[in-house]
């Protein structure tokens, strides 16, 4: 069933229009900003120790979309990142691998070649990432190119300008069309992550509406941020999105994933997010298939913590690879 027909069913309308979407999205309950931030803060105070901590660290590693999205990215840098994804810690082969390597579309083929059938996915950003300011044919071509180059997952950005001016139908159509462009010739499809760029949506109410709109239009994942705008993935914003996917499953029976991205750098932060996932959405989401971290430096910090648990001594930057771009 196509997205528009399903949306008509869900909304109970005969024609999907801007006004129908508006009244549906604006009928969602408002987010209590103070309450939401207080709950996020209280979830962040949980103390996770010993075996639980070890489990959480390994789970967090397996949920990482190891990301490089720089203008200075080269095939060599992407291959290096893929090598890191395949062997995150050479001193301990039992270290889990991250879920995916996330790159710009033109480097998806390089990543695919490096990762092969290892099980580590290739995620490519598309649709004129990070601003999303391009005409629709360009965005679709961007997506199709990445899928053709072997991307297993597509991270698209919504048109925040359209969303903020209340043009929900445009946002809906773009997502639905990009979802179509994720279908491969043989019928399988790349999973679609929809980046809402919550830092530009300003309010939690908007984050909730954008979440529901994205899910209605066929998102497999809702993702906070591009990583290029601050604030990026905050815990309260992620909390609102986790509530959205939980309520969406109650309403439709379908699960949608959540991916906070940008600004999550320490193991401590990552564990706070995992606590929120468990408490808000439920343990079904504590799985790399349903929850991801978009991050680059987070992996090294998790590896340092993992080494600390293994050796009993604090580790240091000399014992993980330096992924920062070379100055030479």
């Amino acid at each position: 069933m196509d997205a528009t027909a399903r949306a008509r069913d869900l909304l109970g309308v005969t024609r999907l229009s801007d006004s129908a979407l508006t009244s549906w999205l604006h009928s969602l309950p408002g987010v209590d900003q103070v309450g939401c931030e207080a709950r996020a803060a209280s979830l962040g105070t949980r103390s996770i120790k010993t075996t639980s901590k070890a489990w959480a660290i390994d789970l967090a590693i397996s949920m990482i979309d190891l990301t490089t999205l720089e203008g200075a990215d080269t095939p060599g840098k992407v291959r290096g990142l893929c090598a890191k994804a395949l062997t995150p810690d050479p001193t301990d082969p039992a270290t889990p691998r991250p879920a995916a390597v996330c790159v710009y579309g033109d480097l998806a083929a390089v990543a695919k070649k490096a990762l092969g059938s290892s099980g580590v996915n290739v995620a490519a950003v598309a649709t004129a990432f990070p601003s999303g300011r391009a005409l629709m044919p360009v965005k679709l071509a961007d997506t199709e190119d990445a899928v053709q180059a072997g991307a297993d997952e597509i991270d698209m950005v919504i048109d925040r300008g359209a969303f903020l001016s209340g043009d929900y139908l445009t946002v809906f159509r773009e997502i639905a069309q990009v979802a179509q462009a994720c279908v491969r010739p043989e019928g399988s499809r790349a999973r679609l992550k929809v980046i809402m760029e919550t830092g530009e949506l300003v309010t939690y109410d908007n984050v909730r509406r954008a979440s529901w709109l994205s899910m209605l239009a066929g998102a497999d994942f809702i993702k906070t941020s591009t990583g290029k705008v601050s604030p990026a993935a905050t815990l309260p914003v992620t909390l609102v999105m986790l509530e959205a996917v939980r309520d969406w499953r109650d309403a439709t029976g379908e699960m949608v994933g959540v991916k906070p991205a940008g600004g999550i750098r320490t193991s401590k932060d990552a564990v706070k997010f995992l606590v929120a996932v468990s408490e808000v959405a439920g343990d079904d989401w504590l799985d790399p298939y349903w929850f991801r971290f978009g991050a680059s430096s987070l992996l090294n910090d998790l590896l340092l913590q993992r080494q600390k648990l293994a050796t009993g001594a604090y580790s240091g930057a000399d014992y993980v690879t330096d992924d920062s771009p070379s100055l030479y």
Partner: peptide, 9 residues
């Protein structure tokens, strides 16, 4: 002992 064993010292 924690300073002595710290790998970044």
């Amino acid at each position: 002992p924690w300073i002595a064993s710290h790998r970044d010292v």
